[in-house]
Write a protein that binds this DNA or RNA. Structure first.
Length: 974
DNA sequence: TACAGATCTTA
DNA sequence: GTAAGATCTGTAC
């Protein structure tokens, strides 16, 4: 549990009574077992878990528990033996349902908690306290007045039946006091259903008035002489002790000892096991709910046998509270407690705090390091940053570590510093002048328990980097929050370095941190950080940790307030260690193959270069578009010269191809030369420079640099290795498995087009995918009336281009360019397409409209892409934003789905004890290294995980299909 | 030395 | 027509 999390606590006993009384009796058909309350209970629970975001609660739970009363006396009976003594026994037909309802909660895979000697309310109070202390928010699903005392910042009640939230303001409207005085009010008023005596003749109105006048119950009892009405004074004086007793009875115990496995963090919610749940519902014979649940969870009803459910002859007779406080009445916005207000307050707080770099400490001995570790434990969270010798996490050596536990309370631990001008570039070699430093091994030994402690949240900016560096030193940081990813989820559009710490700090804290450049210089003058004076590095590094901590406080609550917590928790945070391990593994590349290719490309390029210079009549730099343009269109006067917007001659491949098609020799050679030199320079010669000692290349994936949720790959970019041309594919043959392994490539077939079919719900497209038709041929057939059988390849090619165009937000201009046809003709194609698939135009219009209204579009998983310029007055800018907005939900949903597959993949492989290692992601493709003898077992598993990755959140109306193949290199596997 | 523009590679 | 990153050239500083 941590800041930004949201705990739902369901008052299970109250829920049962409500379900029982609200619904007509229902018996199981096969044997007449009464199950009405179970049915109502299950429906409410399912609705709550699935739809909380759409209700007044507005957020989905990250943590969840159903709390029951336990069937024994509680500490309150020791205080007052008449407590709840007049409670009627539950109705006969409800009794057998109690244990079934507990079974139901377990079938939902939700924690179900009860404790002997305590009421459900005490457990709820305890969990609420713990959650608030951990910085989380709480929704108590109940409207029992006994629970109103718990309402406060971050804590509200929720009446599911009425879809009403109760915050402090609602409590005040109902009882005339704010939540903190509810206990005193109840002590005065009493509760007949619980046998809490209170003071006779004092009702809620009078009690509220008295508390308004005196402040507290104790003050009232001490100053009864000030009560004007004689009768009232006498009755209160006579019943003072009874009021004090009542107060103890109604005060909830916030310190119930929790059993192992019932701690706050054990309440983390996870997707239910579809089979288990469906089996239970089937046993109960709830046909409608069974259908609904299985559809959502992707479970085939026919495949699941009903669970064996034991019906207890008699319940253990729990004291179930039938009283249900009516929470009706006017509801007023509860602004001071809403997640939005909370988030805003945090932002304001962060912006107001100033940074004091002189407060930072340089840690030079183990005693001081121990102090900082202790502080981290006290706070429960620590911001963390590593200073290293390189930007590449796979090569970087640790120079120092910084931590922050509170604003301005931060420290730097120098480890690998050397004196100015001493040591080599990597910072190796010690120097006495830098002063004492704790040895790396000791720092790691001391920090490892903290960094791996599941109870302490570690916060980092670009956490994957620090995770990788530390993992290489045997420390597996967890749990981990990443301020960069939080910012990215909140608004991905500022992606051009927009999530860097310095930018975030200036944007949200109004503070400009010391830049790396200021610290170390840049370019030729750049010094290794290990030789910068430690006092200066302390200011820089501790500030980074401090700023990271502040950003976390400022930004994390916005995830809840803006309904984006699930995107972060499900699609971003869990991916950090997964991608880090992929980078760490790297992929093996055959140096010899690349070297051979480089030689061949060099020869070919030299030949072409000579030809080109002869054809041009003079030597010139072919690689210079400027010189090339002058030669082609100036000196030789070739036709079709176009200017780019900077006034240069355009010499792109497409244009040169056109010239070549007209019979010009030179442009053909230039196109070939460009292809060959590119293959040589960009790939054959560049890739070996990234190889490590084991001939493996470790790309770096950015999780936060696209607007749509895709990953990007750099240094080197392994997401644009050639695949289309014969010569290009030879580069791919150099990507090979380790010995004893095969490379397996698994890619989604047409995933974006399938998602378009699902999202726009075009019947003919949906049917085509369901029946496994050739989608481009089907499109062509629908558009041009040509039968699929014997369709000319050119017709199909046009349809394919149009299909891609649709996904990209089509324009006549673009389609014309792509198909090299006149714009009018392209426009006619589009018109015809929209006539044949009118739902597509409606869908695109809806998306654009939504983007204009809200400023953003969403993927099916709730990820947002912002397009503020979609309302620009410049038609070009506007049209561009419209196309991007149409594309983003499709591309982004596909990105979300493969992220989900990646997150599940390692666990799925481990569960089957398979040794496959996930190495690369290329948007719709995953590449693995699989032990030779496990290939046959692994491929079906990989396919299954990928094909079901959208479930159970989404039930797609079209199947996802994955093609997978094993081979000795990436070209053949792809 | 730093940056923008053109080009080309991928999904 | 969408989304990226790398390299080279040429120019501005």
């Amino acid at each position: 549990m941590q800041k930004g999390d949201h705990l739902f606590l369901v008052d299970g006993s109250a829920y049962i009574f409500r379900a029982y009384h609200a619904l007509p009796p229902l018996s199981r058909k096969s044997d007449g077992l009464p199950v009405g309350a179970v049915a109502g209970f299950c429906n409410m629970l399912w609705k709550l878990v699935e739809e909380a975001r759409e209700t007044e609660v507005g957020v989905a739970p990250t943590h969840f528990a159903v709390i029951f009363d336990h069937s024994s006396t509680t500490f309150r009976n020791e205080l007052y033996d008449a407590y709840k003594a007049n409670r009627a026994a539950p109705p006969e037909d409800l009794r057998p349902q109690f244990s079934l309802i507990r079974d139901a909660v377990r079938a939902f895979d939700l924690p179900c908690v009860e404790r002997q000697g305590f009421e459900a309310d005490d457990l709820i109070a305890t969990y609420t306290r713990l959650a608030v202390e951990a910085g989380g928010d709480v929704t108590i699903v109940s409207s029992d007045k006994d629970l109103m005392q718990l309402v406060g910042p971050g804590v509200t009640l929720y009446d599911q039946m009425k879809d009403k939230r109760l915050g402090a303001q609602e409590v005040f409207e109902k009882f005339g006091v704010y939540p903190e005085k509810m206990i005193d009010l109840q002590a005065l008023v009493g509760d007949s259903s619980d046998n809490v005596p209170g003071v006779p003749g004092i009702g809620p109105k009078t009690a509220a008035g008295l508390l308004d006048q005196f402040g507290t119950l104790e003050a009232l009892l001490e100053r009864t002489s000030e009560i004007k009405q004689q009768k009232r004074r006498e009755v209160i004086e006579a019943n003072a002790e009874q009021a004090r007793l009542s107060k103890r009875l109604v005060t909830l115990d916030q310190n119930v000892p929790l059993a192992d496995g019932e701690g706050l963090d054990d309440l983390f919610i996870h997707e239910p096991d579809g089979e288990k749940l469906v089996a239970f519902l089937k046993a109960m014979e709830f046909t409608t709910l069974t259908r609904r649940v299985s559809a959502k969870l992707g479970t085939d009803i026919a495949d699941v046998a009903p669970a064996k459910v034991a019906v207890e002859a008699a319940p253990r007779g729990p004291d179930l509270d039938a009283s249900w406080t009516d929470a009706s009445g006017p509801r007023v916005g509860n602004l001071e407690l809403s997640p939005a207000a909370h988030a805003q307050a945090r932002l304001a707080e962060a912006a107001a705090q100033t940074v004091d770099r002189t407060a930072y400490e340089t840690v030079r001995d183990e005693a001081r390091l121990a102090h900082w570790i202790r502080r981290a434990y006290e706070e429960g969270a620590v911001a963390f940053d590593t200073e290293t010798t390189a930007l590449d996490a796979m090569r970087a050596e640790i120079v120092g570590l910084s931590v922050a536990v509170a604003p301005n309370e931060a420290a730097y631990v120098p480890i690998g510093h050397v004196g100015e001008g001493h040591g080599d570039l990597l910072g190796h070699g010690q120097d006495e002048s830098v002063g004492p430093q704790i040895p790396l091994g000791r720092v790691l030994d001391l920090l490892k328990p903290l960094l791996e402690d599941p109870a302490i949240l570690k916060i980092a900016q670009n956490a994957k980097y620090d995770y990788l560096v530390m993992r290489r030193h045997g420390v597996e940081i967890a749990p981990l929050d990443d301020t960069m990813l939080i910012s990215y989820v909140l608004d991905a559009s500022s992606s051009l370095d927009g999530h860097g710490m310095d930018e975030l700090s200036e944007r949200f804290l109004g503070h400009k941190p010391i830049s790396y450049k200021e610290l170390c210089g840049s370019g030729r003058a750049m010094k290794p950080i290990a030789s910068v004076p430690i006092e200066r590095v302390t200011e820089y590094a501790a500030e980074d940790a401090d700023v990271t901590l502040r950003l976390h406080r400022a930004l994390k609550p916005r995830l809840v307030a803006e309904g984006l917590l699930h995107v972060y928790e499900r699609l971003e945070r869990p991916l950090v260690p997964v991608v880090a391990r992929m980078e760490e593994r790297g992929i093996r590349v055959d140096r010899q193959i690349l070297s051979r290719l480089s030689g061949r490309f060099a020869q070919k390029a030299a030949g072409l270069e000579a030809d080109i210079h002869i054809l041009a009549g003079e030597p010139f730099n072919i690689g210079s578009p400027k010189q090339l343009g002058d030669v082609l269109f100036g000196k030789l006067g070739l036709p079709g010269g176009k200017k780019t917007r900077t006034g240069q001659w355009a010499t792109d491949a497409r244009l040169l191809e056109d010239l070549a098609a007209q019979g010009h020799e030179l442009p053909r050679r230039i196109v070939d030369w460009r292809q060959i030199t590119r293959l040589k320079n960009n790939y054959a010669d560049a890739l070996p420079t990234f190889m490590d000692e084991q001939d493996r290349i470790h790309t770096s994936y950015s999780l936060a640099s696209t607007t749509t949720g895709r990953l990007s790959s750099s240094e080197p970019n392994l997401q644009n290795i050639p695949a289309r041309t014969e010569e290009g594919r030879e580069i791919r043959t150099a990507f090979v498995p380790a010995s004893g392994y095969q490379l397996v490539s698994a890619d989604y077939s047409q995933i974006e087009l399938r998602l378009l079919a699902h999202m726009s719900q075009i019947p003919s497209l949906v049917t085509a995918f369901r029946e496994g038709q050739d989608i481009h041929a089907a499109t062509a057939s629908e558009m041009f009336g040509v039968p699929v059988e014997g369709m000319p390849s050119d017709i199909r090619r046009r349809a394919k281009t149009i299909n891609f165009g649709i996904i990209y937000g089509i324009s006549a201009f673009g389609l014309a360019a792509q198909l090299t046809i006149p714009q009018a003709e392209a426009g006619a194609y589009i018109k015809r397409y929209f006539e044949r698939f009118p739902g597509i135009r409606d869908y695109m219009d809806r998306v654009k409209q939504g983007a204009k209204e809200r400023g953003y579009v969403e993927t099916l998983f709730g990820r947002r892409a912002h397009y503020p310029d979609i309302k620009a007055s410049n038609p070009q800018v506007r049209a561009f934003n419209e196309r991007a907005a149409v594309n983003a939900p499709i591309q982004g949903t596909a990105a979300d789905i493969i992220r989900r597959a990646m997150i599940r993949m390692e666990g799925a492989l481990a569960k089957e004890r398979l040794g496959a290692r996930m190495l690369l992601q290329v948007h719709d493709e995953l590449v693995f290294e699989v032990p030779d003898d496990e290939v046959d077992a692994t491929i079906p598993l990989i396919r299954h995980v990928m094909e079901t990755a959208a479930e159970p959140v989404l039930e797609l109306s079209v199947p996802l299909v994955v093609d997978a193949r094993a081979a000795g290199n990436w070209d053949e596997a792809h």
